[in-house]
Design a binder for these strands. Structure first.
Length: 399
DNA sequence: CTTCCACCGGAAGTACCGGTAA
DNA sequence: TTACCGGTACTTCCGGTGGAAG
C-alpha cells in the first residue's frame, strides 16, 4: 500500500468529534433558542394576527450582532408558515438579506421571486415588477410578510424608496395585506430614514440585548450537545468560549469558534475538544476574519491599505489624506495602473472605516488646512501577511 | 475680525456592462 | 437589431468648513 493509500485510509477511519456539524453552521436554526423566549413570544404575538385573519403590525427589530435577531425571526416565520397552512390561510413570506440585495431593484426582485413569480435578474423596469407583485398578491395571498434583514444596508445604498412603497402598499390592496419586518444592528439607522417610513415601520419594536456570559454558556452547551458526540468536548472548553465571546455578547462568533475548535481537534486526531484546541480556534477565527475581509477588498482599496502601511512604517508623524493620496498615486504608477481622484479615494476611506480596518479623525491645522488623520486598526504585520501574498504588491511595497 | 489652506462630501454626469422585450 | 433598464465604478463640479495666520 502506498503512502497516500495509507493516509486516505487513516482519514476515513478517523473518528470525528462531530455528531452533526450542521448544528454549528451559521444558518442553522435550532428549534429552541435559549434566553430568547421573550423576544420569540413578542414577535409571535404580533404575527399571530395572521392566524386570526387580521393584518399584523409592521415590526422593527433592533440589537447588536449575534443577539439572535435573525434566528428568532426565521424560527417564528417558519412556525407561522406551518401553522398558517394548517389553518388553510394563504400566507407567504420573503426573507431578504439586504447585505446581498442592497439595491431597491434587487431587493424587489427577491421579494417577487419568493412570492412565486418568475422574474429575470435584470432588464425589467422597477414599476413593472412592482405591479406584477401586487397582482400576484391579490390573486394568491391573504397575507404576505417581507423580512428585510440588515435593512440599513439597503437604505444606505439605495434610499428608502422601496420601503416607502411597501409601507403604503396596503392602501391599494383589496384582498390581501403586506407587513414588513425590518432588522438592523445600526444604532444610527433611524437617523437616515424618512420620518413617514420610520413611523410606519416601527408600529411595533422588538429589542435584542447582548447575551451575558452565562447565557452564552447555555447556548453553547445546547449547540454542543447537538453537534458533538457525548463527552467529546470538555466543559472548560465551552466555558472558555463563553468567556471570550462575552466581551461583545455575540453568539454567532461563539458558535463559530466552537465549530473551528472541533475542526482543529479532528485535524490533530484528538477524540476530545480540549481547552488547547479552543484557544487555537480563537486565534484562527480572529485572523481568518481579517484575512477574508482583506482578500475580498477591491484592488484599489488593498493598494490604499498598503500605502497606509508603508507610510506608517516610515513613521514620519501623522498620516493625512493628502499624504496617502501621494503614496497611493506612486504605487499605482509603479504598477502602471491608472489612479483615481481624491473624491473617490475619500469613498474608499469611508468604506474601510465602516469595515473597521482603519479609523480617522478630522483635524484642523488652521492656516494649513483641514484634513483627516488616518490610522490603521489592523497591525501592519497582519496586513502584510495577507496582502503581500500578491507578488505585484511585494515589488512595489519593498522599496 | 477676515483670510485662506487642504481638504470634505453631496449631486449629477459619463462610460461601460449584462440583461429583456419587441 | 434596437431601445430600454439597472448596476458598477468612477469623474467633474462645487459649495462648505475649523481655526492658525495675518
Amino acid at each position: 500500500m502506498s503512502l497516500l493509500d495509507r493516509f486516505f485510509d487513516k482519514v476515513l477511519n478517523r473518528k470525528s468529534v462531530f455528531r452533526d456539524k450542521k448544528a454549528l453552521s451559521i444558518d442553522y436554526i435550532p428549534e429552541e433558542l435559549p434566553h430568547r423566549e421573550q423576544e420569540i413570544l413578542k414577535l409571535a404575538g404580533i404575527l399571530a394576527n395572521i392566524i386570526k385573519g387580521t393584518r399584523p403590525s409592521n415590526v422593527f427589530e433592533y440589537g447588536p450582532v449575534g443577539t439572535g435577531k435573525t434566528a428568532v425571526t426565521k424560527l417564528v416565520m417558519k412556525k407561522l408558515y406551518e401553522r398558517a397552512r394548517l389553518h388553510e390561510i394563504r400566507f407567504c413570506f420573503s426573507y431578504v438579506n439586504c447585505r446581498f440585495y442592497r439595491s431597491n431593484y434587487r431587493a424587489l426582485v427577491k421579494v417577487a421571486i419568493d412570492s412565486g413569480l418568475r422574474i429575470p435578474k435584470t432588464g425589467l423596469p422597477t414599476d413593472v415588477i412592482f405591479s406584477m407583485f401586487v397582482k400576484r398578491l391579490e390573486e394568491k395571498f391573504d397575507f404576505f410578510v417581507v423580512v428585510f434583514d440588515e435593512i440599513d444596508w439597503l437604505v444606505k445604498f439605495s434610499g428608502d424608496d422601496i420601503l416607502y412603497q411597501f409601507t403604503r402598499l396596503n392602501g391599494d390592496l383589496r384582498n390581501s395585506s403586506v407587513s414588513i419586518i425590518g432588522i438592523t444592528n445600526d444604532v444610527k439607522f433611524r437617523d437616515y430614514l424618512d420620518a413617514r417610513v420610520l413611523s410606519s415601520l416601527s408600529e411595533e419594536t422588538v429589542i435584542f440585548s447582548p447575551y451575558s456570559q452565562g447565557q452564552l454558556y447555555d447556548i453553547l452547551l445546547h449547540r454542543a450537545t447537538l453537534a458533538f458526540h457525548n463527552g467529546c468536548i470538555s466543559d472548560e472548553a465551552i466555558r472558555y468560549v463563553a468567556a471570550v465571546a462575552a466581551r461583545d455578547g455575540d453568539a454567532r462568533r461563539a458558535i463559530d469558534m466552537l465549530r473551528v475548535s472541533g475542526e482543529i481537534a479532528d485535524r490533530e486526531g484528538s477524540n476530545i475538544v480540549t481547552l488547547e484546541h479552543v484557544k487555537k480556534a480563537c486565534n484562527e477565527v480572529e485572523k481568518n476574519l481579517i484575512g477574508e475581509i482583506l482578500a475580498a477588498l477591491p484592488p484599489n482599496q488593498q493598494l490604499l491599505l498598503l500605502a497606509l502601511a508603508s507610510l506608517s512604517k516610515k513613521g514620519n508623524g501623522k498620516i493625512t489624506t493628502g499624504s496617502v493620496k501621494k503614496e497611493f498615486d506612486a504605487f499605482n504608477k509603479r504598477i502602471g495602473r491608472p489612479t483615481v481622484t481624491l473624491r473617490r479615494l475619500n469613498d474608499y476611506i469611508a468604506e474601510l472605516e465602516t469595515l473597521g480596518i482603519i479609523s480617522s479623525t478630522v483635524v484642523s491645522f488652521g492656516r494649513y488646512g483641514r484634513t483627516r488623520i488616518l490610522k490603521l486598526e489592523v497591525p501592519t504585520e497582519v496586513l502584510e501577511e495577507y496582502l503581500l501574498k500578491d507578488s505585484i504588491y511585494r515589488e512595489i511595497y519593498l522599496d
